[in-house]
């Protein structure tokens, strides 16, 4: 277990759906891979593409964005904006030498604790198969912007 590659994954979860699904998975005591570290935003529409790139630059092997199902956004349509941005990002990532599969956007509603567990496990496994993003030496750490 310990010699197996354990990826670092940043999760951007929206406050109303996916973050609550993660809370529900917790209260239901579902066990899942410990690799996803959650950053809470009010809406998946707040996830700035620069934040995703910043995560990869700082050592993330994968980024998981979680939002409400289409039509269910707490802010009407922020999740659609997240969808467009992630599509563009997935086109852009290969230009940096990053496999587009390292970024995933999922719709997980507040009642879908089980789905959250499955998505996290499956995505962690996928990133594990892809291997570490920074294969050679880790890129020099960059100071926090601003």
């Amino acid at each position: 277990m310990s010699d197996k590659f354990s990826p670092s994954i940043v999760g951007f979860f929206c406050n109303w759906c996916t973050y609550l699904a993660a809370d529900l998975a917790g209260t239901s005591r579902m066990k899942y891979a410990p690799n996803v570290r959650v950053v809470r935003t009010m809406c998946s529409g707040r996830v700035d593409p620069q934040m995703v790139l910043w995560a990869f630059r700082n050592g993330a092997d994968g980024v998981l964005i979680g939002g409400c199902h289409p039509g269910d956004c707490h802010y009407q349509e922020g999740n659609y904006k997240a969808l467009r941005r992630s599509k563009l990002l997935r086109k852009m990532l290969p230009q940096f030498g990053i496999e587009p599969e390292r970024l995933r956007l999922e719709w997980i509603s507040a009642s879908e604790g089980e789905r959250l567990r499955d998505v996290v496990n499956e995505f962690t496994e996928q990133i594990r198969r892809l291997g570490p993003l920074h294969k050679k030496e880790a890129a020099p750490k960059v100071a926090v912007a601003a």
Partner: peptide, 29 residues
């Protein structure tokens, strides 16, 4: 307070209280 405008702003002039760029970038790091 969804912050969608903040994510879209190319100049960084749009900011969201409690979810400022600096805060979220620091958290990611």
């Amino acid at each position: 307070g969804c912050g969608t405008c903040v994510a879209a702003c190319p100049s960084g002039s749009a900011q969201q209280n409690l979810f400022r760029d600096e805060q979220l970038f620091a958290e990611v790091e």
